[in-house]
Design a protein around this nucleic acid. Sequence first.
DNA 1: TGCCAGGCCGGGT
DNA 2: ACCCGGCATGGC
Length: 212
Amino acid sequence: MLPLFYLLLRHFGPQHWWPAKGPFEVMVGAVLTQNTAWKNVERAIANLKEKGVLDPVSMAALPADTLAELIRPAGFFRVKASRLKSLVAFLMEHYQGDVGLMAKEPGWLLRERLLAVRGVGEETADSILLYALDKPFFVVDAYTRRILTRQGVISGRERYGEIQRFFMDQLPADVELFKEFHALLVELGKRYCRSRVPLCRECPLYLEVGCG
DNA sequence: TGCCAGGCCGGGT
DNA sequence: ACCCGGCATGGC
């Protein structure tokens, strides 16, 4: 697993997802990017910034349909507006809207609590834990599953938690490693969907990645 | 032009 | 315990 990481890193370079963004912006992005191209999420985030509502208190005070209009470019805008409202309500209720306070809690507790929020499933919860709060939880997405399935490493029928354990059992619990590795797997999936490609010229390793 | 994006939920079997 | 339809915009 670690050799694959270094191979991908050498081939694609560091992805640095969510570089130097505030944790709240990352949390919002995690919800907005659900089954949605990142480019569309950027527009929605830009709208929120422009209106000055990219913080828990402002967003909590914003009517849901106003919020929906701002995030329209990200698609599923009505459900996502409702999900964001649930998330900020959760932040206000438990942590007075202070994400720094939230980050002091143990990861396992935060994961339980996040999963109880409507609209936050396992991948979104882990994305928030890893990229917003620097907790070592490996993020599993559709690409990760496809790549492992295509490599014959798993059958493809495994539950989210099993695939997550597959990574976490054999990798050091390193936040930066988890961040880069997940981002690199997504990059691999995006660029080489349905094709058989050499990851680097010198290396004999070939990956066959499929999307279906 | 149609298919698909860094999912999740609720209802039905 | 699975399976499915709904949710929606923008890019290739």
